[in-house]
Amino acid sequence: MIEFRSVSKTFADGTTAVRDFSLVLPSRTTTVFVGSSGCGKTTLLRMVNRLVEPSSGQVLIDDVDVATRNPVELRRSIGYVMQHAGLLPHRRVVDNVAVPLRLAGVGRSEATSRALAALETVGLDPALARRYPRQLSGGQQQRVGVARGLVADPNILLMDEPFGAVDPIVRDDLQQELLRLQRELDKTIVFVTHDIDEAFLLGDQVVILRRGGEVAQVGTPAEILADPADDFVRTFVGLDKARRTLHVEERAGARIVVDGDGRPAGVLGPA
């Protein structure tokens, strides 16, 4: 379990990224921070492994304040996946995945075999293991990034817009892959995105943020759609747009789901 207790962050240049933020992130669930740029979502994420120190307040993992832990050891115990994969260009793919293990003191051959297993877990062709990162496509690099985040089998996985820089088809693929992995692995995932569809797809708990790290609404996707807290949330999740406002029409004996513009979106089947 991760807990934010009245956390605030003001950077050296005077901008306030987060103001008095409190939230509990239950274990073995996915929590998604979603909001437009400047809402402090990445800052919140980076506080969990002390890449950012809060100006006030506490971040706790299983009731232990992270500020009391050695930052380097803390980071080794938490998986981290970032937007541009952040792979080391001078290491081969398999060695990149093995980095967290090597840092933890695991021997070279064991680290390599576990890294190869992690590559298989994320569905990457083993033939790519001996390549350098820049010889891979963006989507492949991102899979390597996920493998690196998982290889040391951490309880917590932090994901900072991991699929933000790949094209929509690959992104679709990676999202489905992550859902499958989460069913198997049961990690506590903290996921940051600016894409509300991605947030609703992946999140058990979705946190919608506005500028300055203020919470607009917290809830399951269904709760947010059913009862948006205010106009900001209503607009942000797209409830003012035709594609979110669906109704059912009878057509030739079938029940068709139709959006606000009257365009058919699908068929209503038995529940």
Partner: peptide
Amino acid sequence: PREVVDAADATGHSTWQRALRV
């Protein structure tokens, strides 16, 4: 590249490990 140095921090390199290995 900033994101690589950042990744080195995030994966838990100490200052020395980051300097020598990355």
